[in-house]
């Protein structure tokens, strides 16, 4: 009896959230699936036709889209370890109760508060051909680095966007990992120190295992955000040079809004959802097996 009442209360409490998810996530998703199987064009006065999986078949043989897919996957593959690693390093660095580390935490977290558009404009200026980044690199490499237009370089443009993204995002992951670090009991470290474990050994055998759950969360969140890469591309490179920084979301927005190809854009976003879902499930399963 009590269980049923509790269950009813649980449903009641969850209803607003579920309703929100249904209206703002499930419904648009279902609409995108439906649209991707039609010949929908933004603003078209013609009647809608069902065309089947034509757009999917075209996309999977379109070199431009496949390049965007590869760019996105490559970006995520690089961003996840880099950003998680940097966040962990930052968290370890500021995991002390001193005034300096409180200041450092604030500074490291600051980029998270900035809007992505602002960050992108800022870094576009930093990357200018004779801008600060070029000059610092030239000085550090004793002139081996020739100042050039990083954002128009087919090999450097995507890494440049990556640096911006990691810089902007790492502060948030740092906070999650910092909370994890502070929940590890000190006596574990003390006991390990008594047993003669060095700093590296303590990090590997205590810190990492105790943080694993949070690291996985951070990795999943980072990979999902990486797959959504758009703002920086839109502002910094517009997909260029010659598709070197085109991502799936960039292509989808370009198709659906710049070229009014709503069905094609919908199909792109569905493919992206499928890819992200597959990766999340795979990581989740990996995590389940480990536990």
């Amino acid at each position: 009896m009590k269980g049923a009442a509790e269950e009813r209360a649980a449903w009641m409490l969850a209803t607003p959230a579920l309703l929100g998810m249904a209206v703002f996530i499930l419904l648009p998703f279902a609409a995108a699936v439906a649209l991707s199987l039609t010949d929908a064009r933004l603003g078209s006065p013609l009647p809608l036709h069902l065309v089947g999986p034509v757009h999917y078949l075209r996309l999977l043989t379109d070199p431009g889209f496949l390049r965007a897919l590869a760019n996105t996957a490559g970006f995520a593959a690089a961003a996840v370890p880099l950003q998680t690693g940097l966040a962990l390093a930052l968290a370890l660095a500021v995991n002390r109760e001193t005034r300096a580390s409180a200041l450092a935490r604030t500074l490291f977290f600051l980029p998270v508060v900035f809007p992505l558009s602002l960050v992108s404009v800022l870094w576009t200026l930093l990357y200018a051909p004779s801008g600060p980044v070029a000059r610092v690199l030239a000085t550090l490499t004793l002139g081996v680095w020739q100042p050039g237009d990083v954002l128009h370089d087919p090999w450097l443009a995507l890494p440049a966007v990556l640096v911006t993204s990691v810089w902007q995002g790492a502060g948030f992951q740092m906070v999650i990992l910092l909370a994890g670090l502070q929940s590890i009991p000190d006596d574990l470290y003390e006991a390990a120190a008594l047993d003669g474990a060095g700093a590296w050994r303590r990090f590997r055998s205590i810190t990492l295992p105790m943080l694993r759950g949070r690291l996985v969360v951070v990795a999943i969140v980072t990979s999902i955000l990486s797959f959504r890469l758009f703002d920086q591309v839109r502002i910094m490179t517009r997909g260029g040079p010659d598709g070197a920084t085109a991502t799936v979301v960039w292509e989808a927005v370009r198709a659906a809004f710049d070229q009014a190809q709503l069905a094609r854009g919908s199909a792109m976003s569905i493919l992206l959802v499928v890819a992200v879902l597959a990766i999340t499930l795979a990581v989740g399963r990996l995590r389940g097996e480990e536990a």
Partner: peptide
Amino acid sequence: YAAVTGAFAEAFLAIRDGA
């Protein structure tokens, strides 16, 4: 036109890069 200019600009950039 949106499709025309999008496709042409993309082609021009590729040609610029030696395609």
